[in-house]
Computed example of a mutant assay.
Amino acid sequence: MTSEVVELTRDLVAIPSHEDETLAGNYVEEWLDRETDADVTRDGAGNVIARRGSGGETLALVGHHDVVEPAPPQRIADTGKYVVERRGDRLYGRGAADMKGAVAAAMVAFRDVDPAGELVFASFVGEEVGGVGARHAIDEGFAPDYAVVGEGSTNYSGPDVTDVVVAHKGRRGSTIVASGAAAHASEVDAGENAIYRATDVVSLVRGIEPPSLEVAGETIEGSVVVTEIEGGTAMNVVPARCELTVDERTVPGERAPLERVESIEGVEWIVDQDLPPMRCDDDAFADTVLDAADAAQSGSPSLVTKPHATDAGWLSAAGTECVVCGPSEPGEAHTDDESVSVTVLERCSETYRRVAERWPR
């Protein structure tokens, strides 16, 4: 028999949501209105937020219903819908792992649980393009005390186990502009070579020691790397401008000192994207989620870290204590054959239900 979580996942995955999340949001909103007695709202960005229960601190089950663009085999020609296919214990389709499966698991848990306090369900838009929905919700006052974000945490500590992520990296992307003065290449001293200034930037960046952090017995290591360079207009012209891009993976609490590049004459540093890292500082909450995950599976889950930024970073930066727990496995998200385990979908829904029964204390 196919479970309700699987059917919900199938329905959600089939709905296109890589350019416009409206239809997927409509489905989630209408299901919650029909199946629960919650107060269901849709904000100006398109986020679906529902609340039930009362008293004390607030726990949120958080996901997102946007996806990255599907590969051609993941779309049904002439209909716009996405292909969804079950093969054995796995469901295949764009968004099955990242992360409509987790949204479906949270929807069922949200409906079925008798919550210990105020329970919130939130499915955001725009996670794949920088956390647009989460940032909008936070700006509008979305501020749960605690959150379980349903991004991937399965098979991190070992096979067939869904772990609990207590910290993850962020990402800061920068453009560094080196400016000089153009001149004919036969009169080198008449100009200021922007490429030479850019090479000074490269040397400085290569010498930066990225920060690292010990969490849950693991070391989260930051990184900083020059990823692109472009400059010059012609073979016989001293270049007046050269641009670099830098990818930096950040860790909670500390950043690489990239501002040092502006100590070089003619250099400007521009931050293009800054996705914050996350760390859970409430051990009791993390242990409660770990106990719930342990009770929902035969394997032995662990507290782990994650290399990827998620909406938990935005929530954590706004003051919410977060963990990440969800069905997606390493290597599944954004792939041409993206899939999720049916067994793990059920496992995650049961985990969310157990957490909501016990937390807030």
Rank of each mutant, 00 (worst) to 15 (best):
E4T: 10
W314K: 08
G299T: 00
D281E: 15
K306M: 11
S223C: 03
E4R: 07
G95T: 01
L258D: 10
Y156S: 13
D43G: 07
G55M: 01
A296N: 04
E69L: 01
V251E: 11
L204N: 08
V28S: 09
P252I: 00
T9Y: 09
S17H: 03
G231P: 04
Y92A: 10
P360D: 13
S157P: 07
G126N: 02
V83Q: 11
S157I: 00
V68W: 08
A312Q: 03
D287P: 02
T227I: 05
V344A: 15
F285S: 12
Y156G: 09
V48E: 14
H184F: 06
C322F: 03
D89H: 06
A14W: 01
E187P: 02
Y27L: 08
E4N: 12
A77F: 10
D37R: 04
A60N: 08
I76P: 13
S300P: 04
D247F: 04
G46A: 12
V224S: 11
E128T: 01
G173D: 14
P211N: 09
G95R: 00
S349G: 15
E230G: 15
A185Q: 00
P330G: 07
E338Q: 06
T58V: 15
I208A: 12
D272Q: 09
K169C: 09
V267S: 03
R87K: 09
T79K: 03
L61V: 06
V166E: 13
E350F: 05
V342A: 14
R347G: 14
V340S: 11
G170V: 02
E19W: 12
D311C: 06
A284Y: 10
S153H: 00
S349R: 06
S316M: 06
R347H: 14
A96M: 00
A134C: 12
R94I: 06
E21Y: 08
A293S: 09
S263N: 13
P115R: 03
A137Y: 04
A105N: 04
R260Y: 10
T343Y: 13
R34K: 08
S17Y: 03
A178D: 08
C322V: 09
A96N: 00
R354V: 05
V164F: 05
G217N: 00
R90V: 05
E228N: 14
D33W: 11
W359D: 13
A198K: 07
L61I: 02
I195D: 13
V355G: 11
R10A: 12
P72F: 07
G55L: 02
P252C: 08
N193S: 05
R42Y: 02
A38Q: 02
V5D: 14
S212M: 01
E329V: 04
V132F: 15
D78N: 09
S157A: 04
